[in-house]
Design a protein around this nucleic acid. Sequence first.
DNA 1: TCTGGGGTCCTAGGACCC
DNA 2: TCTGGGGTCCTAGGACCC
Length: 398
Amino acid sequence: MSDRTASVLHVDLDAFFVSMELLRRPELRGLPVVVAGGLGPRGVVNTCSYEARTFGVRSAMPVSRARQLCPAATFLESDYPYYSAASRTFHAILRDYTPLVEPAGADEAYLDVAGSERLFGDAPTIAAGIRRRIHEEIGITGSVGVSINKLVSKVASDAGKPDGLVVVTAGEEAAFFAPRPIRELPMVGPKTAEALRGLGVHTLGELARFPIGALEARFGHHGRELHARALGIFDAPVLAGHGAAKSISRETTFDNDEPSRERLRAILRGQCERVAADLSRQDRASRTITLKLRFPPFETLTRSASPGRPIDLADELFEAAGDLFERAWSEHACRPVRLIGMGATNLQERARQLRLGESMDANVLFETVAGLRDRFGDAVIQRGAEIGHSRDHHGPHH
DNA sequence: TCTGGGGTCCTAGGACCC
DNA sequence: TCTGGGGTCCTAGGACCC
């Protein structure tokens, strides 16, 4: 069948945040542990230990639900600065084997080792070496899938979790996929899975045998793609690096729905400053600004505007986002807001120079603030109007 | 159960241009 | 009169991923 050799690896750290917490809290090993982005009333689970999973706890689940399912679990708040050092070590290990490393988040990446085999051995040998080094140098376990493409390697590493190595030899892709449930295929989320089950399709083998025409009638172009993927066919190559960002955004969900126009505007202003700082560091400017509002119970709207020229300063972002906010909010009768956010999209390289007489002080200030927030977290510096807000109890006190 | 925050990609309709 | 076809940009929303 295939004359390609299996040289694509997907490497994934196991229950990354929880594994890192267990390193410094070994007394919790073997117990249900849940790490959540926030422990407030609207927090959701980031990662949980395999012991917690036996109670039905899952990623992206509301913390309130996780507490019901497993009241005995230890609940911890995510500590991103602590995890990021391990993440850098992880990616550095991978780059020791090939420059062809495509990061896919803090705790996973794809590698193509076709050009590295003379130096380091065949792909399964390299996979074993990577797993050993992750364990020795970070102290946690990782899983690896090896196959001819990114899709099959991803499914393979998931199948081996935790602490697994799964090799799918060339030509065996469809057979490896056939018995697996459709939800294990990347691109089949809750909605697509429900629609497929409605067609009587529960496994990837059933999906592969389903008539393409019927899939296209139901899912459009999506249908043809689903069918190909069910057979393990996937062409996108491993691309080094992560490329320039296509959008930059910040959003905030309130513990209690926020009714105050002034406080909403102040939060929005802070978000514009953070986005402006990111734009500045990446030398990018935005041609489209998007405002996001969510009203209770869970009704989300977005409004966007494209000013005539690319913009990148906090004042410019806030001028656009503030206008969008005023219009959208009054359309919704100034109801209390569950979430407010803004984003810069349609990014392009920033060509602008600092104009004579422009407020250099303000730009220097913003970049200083951005640097402090990088090192100590977003809560370290806040505008006066943000202080005393309901979400502050998450942050450090000064 | 009651749903974070940061992203990517796709669709679909309408405006506008040739 | 009352109408083609293609291309591009913009906006709003939604599915999906980590």
